[in-house]
Nucleic acid binder design. Structure first.
Lengths: 249, 249
DNA sequence: TTTAATTTGTTCGTATGTATG
DNA sequence: TCATACATACGAACAAATTAA
């Protein structure tokens, strides 16, 4: 018989585990409140510093939010993709991710989203996508900023039609990453009306494929769109490498 | 002229930002050490508790690791996918993710990985994949546990061949999620030799497609493999829904 | 509007167990 | 073995912020 070394679990970690489990199991719903720090001190039998370390960790994980003087205690937050974005940003920066790697990844995710949406979308979801498309057309005359927002809403409406939260979250995060990575170039050369028109036309082709349930075509169009849209920002050689992934039948 | 409300940035957050920036910019390399807490207290001009809250957050983000009594101070960790896994687990649990959603997502990611690997893999990477495949064959006689490990290594060797850290990390994380979600069922019905043989055969087909650079076939084989492998764990109706995403030309 | 009570943000001092030379 | 420096954890205290009487 050999005993195994007991691993040191710090006090704040046990506090984190219990609260986190309560939130993840929906025992604590979004919008509800945790007890005050001093009450938590009593309930967990630890010092306030320990409780606060635990709350900081939970806060950095995007699970709760606390503000000074709030008599209600920390608020349980609704799920958001901020923590996923943080994780991916860390990977991107530490691996010194090139733009091509990010665009590659976005091409894949976006293709997957459109493919799945074409397969499983309901009529209501299709309507929402169509409305988002029409909103884009209207936003063209309002400048490239409004157009960009409408574009974002269009992509989100397609992602919502997949009914897959994980895919949806990834799509949202990666879109944000790409935008932040090309934002300086985009600001230097904002969309012209001609470019917006072309972009809109491509979006409508994707919409058409989704409507007809042509998953393969929707996926390929989505991939091609990435190259057309970001093509001006990337080197010719990089463009060629991306085009290899657009295997239209 | 209207002033905007200054947002309260807490002391520990400024500490986090500075240290995080130093790590992400590679100014602090993995394996190097942070100053001791007491030194950080002096450098940042804050109290010990504040420094510790910051260190806890950085630790929960998987960037550093500290242990009691270490005269070197906290260690800067190498990048790992644990934080990404944590983020995705939170999404999965809070959205009450169904197995089908997870399998769908894995099918997509795995398909993307094989597709890209078939496009860009080097000869060295192909050799590594082949060796992993041969390792699987050898592990068949060592039981399903050894086979499972060899299987994992095979998938990771393909992911490495994509040279895309983001895709690689996602693949690793999602594979882990699926495994943990079906682990109880898997333990109840471990792989038989016949199942392992069949699995190996399918892996070799993927390897062949990657070797020949047939990206579309590699992707479709990878997707089909998911259904064949996890098919027994999921309802017939779910299986049909997954099969719609396997559009072999 | 002002005041009082409560809560979080932050600091300091101290005791304890741990790792290194 | 001992001394030193370290992280862990606790408790008390004050400032700043919020809420409600």
């Amino acid at each position: 018989m050999a005993f195994t070394r007991v691993q040191h679990v710090r006090a704040y970690q046990r506090v984190v585990q219990q609260i986190e489990e309560a939130i993840l199991s929906a025992e604590l719903a979004p919008g509800s409140h945790l007890p005050s720090e001093r009450e938590l001190v009593e309930q967990f039998g630890v010092s306030r510093a320990t409780v606060r370390e635990a709350l900081r960790v939970l806060e950095s994980a995007g699970l709760i939010s606390s503000r000074p003087g709030d008599p209600n205690g920390a608020t349980v937050l609704a799920l958001s993709s901020t923590n996923l974005a943080r994780s991916m940003t860390i990977i991107a920066r530490r691996e010194r991710l090139e733009l091509i790697d990010l665009l590659q990844f976005r091409m894949f995710i976006e293709g997957n989203v459109c493919e799945l949406a074409a397969c499983v979308r309901t009529d209501e979801q299709l309507l929402a996508i169509r409305q988002a498309s029409e909103r884009m057309r209207a936003a063209m005359s309002e400048g490239f900023e409004a157009f960009g927002e409408a574009d974002l809403a269009f992509h989100m409406s397609i992602a919502a039609a997949t009914d897959n939260p994980l895919l949806q979250a990834c799509d949202e995060v990666v879109l944000g990453l790409v935008r932040s990575m090309v934002s300086e170039k985009l600001a230097a050369a904002p969309d012209t009306v001609a470019q917006m028109k072309e972009s809109l036309a491509r979006h409508e082709m994707v919409l058409d494929a989704i409507e007809k349930g042509d998953a393969a075509r929707a996926a390929n169009l989505a991939r091609l769109h990435q190259i057309d849209y970001y093509g001006s920002f990337i080197a010719q050689e990089v463009q060629f490498r991306l085009e290899r992934l657009c295997n239209l039948p």
